[in-house]
């Protein structure tokens, strides 16, 4: 028996039906069509599926679709403002903070969540805040630089 869930996704009211034991990750990808949310492990270890749920950073593979009822979700698809990329997106491109890009949606969401709490993080704070997101391509160097640079730009704005 499916459950009907209504939630706010990237500011839009969205209803979807999912199985009671279906993860929010699967529901977002397969029911809502938000394939920007990636699955790297399904066990909470890689962060590719990172989203925010009522502002809190979560691995969507560890949340049930049904738990999204009445709550607000943000995914990578909602990060840019119309044609204007979010500073993090822009800086990820400028710094080549992505190679294959499969980890990028998760990193962007996690980094955004960090900068909302800490507008001026140190390199170490960035590294620890992003330690739940795995990237196998970049060695993290350019990701950390992109986040620090985006933070700097956002502080100026």
């Amino acid at each position: 028996m499916s459950v009907l869930v209504s939630s706010t996704i990237n500011g839009d009211n969205i209803e979807f039906a999912c199985e009671p034991d279906e993860t929010l990750l699967d529901a977002l990808r397969d029911r809502v069509g938000m394939t920007g949310v990636k699955e790297g492990c399904g066990t909470g270890d890689c962060g590719a599926c990172s989203i925010t749920l009522d502002g809190a950073l979560v691995c969507s593979c560890l949340v049930l679709g049904a738990e999204a009822e009445g709550r607000s979700i943000e995914t990578v698809e909602g990060m840019s403002d119309g044609n204007t990329l979010h500073p993090l997106q822009q800086k990820f491109l400028e710094h080549a903070a992505l190679q294959c890009g499969i980890c990028t949606p998760g990193f962007l969401i996690a980094a955004k969540s960090l900068l909302e709490k800490n507008a001026d993080p140190s390199e170490e704070e960035v590294r620890y805040a992003l330690a739940g997101n795995l990237c196998r391509c970049t060695g993290y160097d350019k990701i950390v630089r992109a986040v620090l640079d985006a933070a700097k730009q956002m502080r100026k704005a």
């Binding site: 790297g40 492990c41 066990t43 270890d45 890689c46 390199e123 170490e124 960035v126 590294r127 620890y128 992003l130 330690a131 739940g132 997101n133 795995l134 990237c135 196998r136 060695g139 993290y140 160097d141 990701i143 950390v144 630089r145």
Partner: peptide, 16 residues
């Protein structure tokens, strides 16, 4: 799994 087969995370590494 990535929990027990642990690849480097961001806080494990310096700038390269």
């Amino acid at each position: 799994g990535f929990l027990d087969y642990r690849i480097p995370v961001c806080s494990d590494l310096p700038m390269i």
